[in-house]
Structures are given as C-alpha cells and as structure tokens.
Amino acid sequence: MSTVPIHAEDAAVGAVTFTDQTPLGTKLARTASGRVGRIVVWILALLWTVPTFGLLVSSFRPEKAIKTTGWWNAFGHLGDMTTKNYSQVLSTKVGGIPFSQYFWNSVKITIPAVVIPIVIAALAAYAFSWMHFKGRDWLFVVVVGLMVVPIQMCLIPLLKLFNLSWLHIGDNGFVKIWIAHAIFAMPLTIFLLKNFIGALPREVMEAARVDGASHLTIFAKLVLPLSVPALASIGIFQFLWVWSDLLVGKVFGGNAQNQPITKAVVDVVGSRGNDWQLLTAGAFIMMIVPLVVFISLQRYFVRGLLAGSVKG
C-alpha cells in the first residue's frame, strides 16, 4: 500500500478492499493448515483415488495385458485399450444367467426398495409430528431404538415368514427383497423424516386445518411437496445402500433370476477369481450407477449424511 493513490476514488476502493479482505477472519481465523497439512491432504487424496483408478484403467486393457503387466504400464500402450472386457462380461453366464441380466435385476430391486420405505416412513413421520395420539413420543422412541438391531438378527425368521406358503411370495425374490429393504430402512428413514417434517412451520399446518384440509390432504398437498429436499437426500442414501447391498439380496433373492448384481460379482470372484478382465469390467458395471448418482447428487447425499449422523 505504498503507492500514492492517483484518484480519491481509487484510494477509497483500496481502503475498502483492505478492510474487507484482511480482517481477523482470514488472517487469524481457524487453524491455518500450512504447507505440510496441504501436502498431507493431497497425498491422501491421491492414495484414495489410485486403487479405483487402477481398476478402471485395467478394465479397458486386453486380457493378456491385465494378467501379465501392471495397469500402470497401460499408458505406454494407449492404443491397445479395448471395451472387449465389457462385452465379454456382459455375456458371461453367472448361475446360468447372463451377467447383464443382473444389472437389470439390481435396477428392479432398487427403485421399489427406495420408493416404498420412503412413502411409508413419510406417512409415519407425519403422524409422529402432527397427529395427536396417546403414547406417541414413546412409540417414536421405540421405532428409532430399533436402529440398533443388526440386520443379521432378522434374516432367518423373516425368511421363514416369507416362505409361508399362504403368503404366496415364497418364489418371488424381488418382492421379498423389496419388503426386506423397506423394513430395514424403516427406523432411520422415519427418524430422518420426522426431524424434517416435524420442523415444518406449525402455523402452516394449522392454517391448512382451518382451511378444511384433512390429514391426508395436508400430507399430500403440503408435507410431501415441502419435504422434497429431505426426500431427495434420503432417497439417494437409500439408493446407494440398496444398490450396494449384498446380504439382503443374497438371503432373500432365492434363485439366480432375482439376485442383484453384487451377488453376481461376488460369484465371479468365487469361481473365476483370476479372470481379472471379467472382474474389473464387471465391478465397473456394478459401480457405474452409484458413482454417477453419487457424483451428480453429492450435495443432497451429504445433507442426508449430516442429518443422519446427528442420531444417537
């Protein structure tokens, strides 16, 4: 600031920017990370990315190259890159069914397994927030408390229940998986949605009642539209969880026709563990949907994550 200002205006601007940009806020605030900290962060970021990157590169290398040289050698032979692994894995049969079918299985599993629990949980969250009934708070505590029950505890009895012949869902693996996912999502989803729906302005709900709206109308015309941000966050959450799931799919899917792609990939690991051209491409086919969803909707996902991690 040693130059002599030419115009009074410039001086004023200089003064403004000076006071604006160098308050204690930026100079002292926080614990400035320093160079070492920055280097550590970038090294970790690199380490965290290399494994995935290696798999991605490998999935495009010829079978022979994958099996004999490290993926880092690929950069010298970019011309060799091929999508053959992908076409090979898609037509590979796993459990008698083409691998590609498992991808669609996962789609068919995931969409209802995201939508059903959210709708049901939203109804319950509305009741816990805006309907009056005896034991409401107590019941809510119980529901949320069920979060501590590990899925593992519920698998066998639930499976037995599903296989009761009069239920007629014994051979429909998808239905069983949908219901199972809906059940296991219920406590956390109700908890998160109650936090959101319960925080909607009370007077707006009351205004609707005075206007003559029933609970169902309030829910459909006000609560659902106003909850879109929360529903999106939770939906993405549940989507990633269901798509990535192996246990529920494996236990409830029954025969191969109803198994998710994760199950197919694990089967390939078990039976053809050294066919890296299949494993790499197969893994990427499995990962591509959640990765795209995750990267494009990360903001919502983080919001859900933060809301969820406030829980006890």
Binding site: L44, T52, G54, L240, S244, T262, V266, G273, M286, L291
Partner: peptide, 28 residues
C-alpha cells in the same frame, strides 16, 4: 485450503463404490 472440495470429494468417493466393489478394487 485451495482445492478443498476436490480433495474431499476424492476421499469421499469410495463411499459410492459399494463394499463389494471395494473388495474387488483392493483384491486387485
């Protein structure tokens, strides 16, 4: 830090690859 969001996103990314995917990535 400059590039904070990129660095954090890279570290966050494995969250999306699923445990099965992670298993294969690391098996490799």
């Amino acid at each position: 830090m400059r590039g904070e969001r990129v660095a954090k996103a890279l570290i966050f990314l494995p969250t999306a690859v699923s445990m099965v995917g992670a298993g294969i990535i690391w098996k490799f």
